[in-house]
Design a binder for these strands. Structure first.
Lengths: 184, 184
DNA sequence: CCTCAAAACTAATATTGTTACTCTTCAAGA
DNA sequence: TCTTGAAGAGTAACAATATTAGTTTTGAGG
């Protein structure tokens, strides 16, 4: 029984995300990650420069997944830009619920992948400009992302403790925000 | 020169917050914290059960400070509830800017001090109910906190990369959101 | 068949949080 | 005044972490 593992960098990054999602961010050690790949920890350094660089790669992967979620949210193409915006923002929240640990990691990291973020933001901005006007589109976009991101983060950190229908609250908050920009 | 340090638990918690704010959360080790108090690391365990419990205490302290910020924001008592809301939400953001590492720590922690959070939320809810009606006040409150929190988190993590006036964007986003709830 | 690079390994280090046990101080009760 | 004991400090030691250095195995190409 020799050394037949033959791990790839992509496999490492993927497994890291899997473990983060399964056991939580705190629990991810290089030893555990290596074990899950039938390998010893130092061998990881053939493929990854450091734990930090590995996490950067995981974050990049997560952003790609999130962008994909945005993209498919537009496939069901309802013409109304307000509806499309709601689809996008709900898709964002749904992604966060489906991948909570990944989501928190990606948005708690300073050195995020600018390109993927820009691409996502563009999809929202193009449609929100129709409500707010081009001049105010950037501010309106930022508020929209803030609203969704903040809502999700407060949910994931268990800071909405008073019960009630969070889905309805989210829908209502998004609607109010978009209405606020539409009202001239 | 015997053992005359006589550290108190409060002094430890306060120093921990100071170091977190000065050097960043990642850099806080019990060794460094102890050294800053002219003490050795194991001696901390006379006052604190674990690093986790220490951080909980720091979070509680931060929530108290944030609540104080909310409270003083209301002292300048403009009668208009919309103006009061804007004061509160701006005070929230200002606090986060003044204590970025503390803020991130407090709102990234699962086991937050429920009482302080409730108290803060109540101040916002009482006033937002005047716009949205009592029935929708909880949803409106949650959206408002989400908007502010999300905006601040995206700012602090450097995810608003396209420049522009962030103060103006924040003001506009808050105004749009509140307007959205007012427009029945 | 040989070689050589890729990719795994073992061994070792510094730093972390944490525990067990000891020493020093000093105030309260005898 | 003497003593006693608890509070708060210290030293030594451990397990786990990320990381580095150096070694061995594998397998494809010349």
């Amino acid at each position: 029984m020799p050394y037949p593992a033959q791990t790839s960098r992509e496999a490492i990054v993927e497994m890291a995300q899997t473990l983060i999602e399964r056991d939580g961010m705190e629990q991810l050690s290089l030893a555990q990650l290596a074990a899950a790949l039938n390998i010893k920890a130092p061998s990881l350094y053939r493929h990854v420069a450091s734990k930090g660089e590995l996490l950067q790669a995981v974050v990049a992967r997560i952003y790609t997944q999130l962008f994909t979620a945005y993209d498919t949210a537009l496939q069901s193409g309802a013409g109304d830009p307000v509806q499309q915006l709601q689809h996008l923002l709900h898709a964002h929240r749904t992604f966060a619920h489906a991948n909570p640990a990944s989501y928190v990691l990606a948005f708690t990291t300073q050195d995020a992948d600018a390109a993927a973020l820009e691409a996502m933001a563009l999809l929202v901005q193009q449609r929100i400009a129709l409500l707010s006007g081009e001049a105010r589109a950037l501010a309106a976009l930022r508020g929209a992302l803030a609203l969704v991101h903040g809502f999700v983060m407060l949910e994931l950190n268990g800071q909405f403790r008073r019960g009630g229908d969070l889905d309805a609250a989210f829908t209502a908050a998004v609607a109010a925000y978009l209405a606020g920009w539409s009202a001239h």
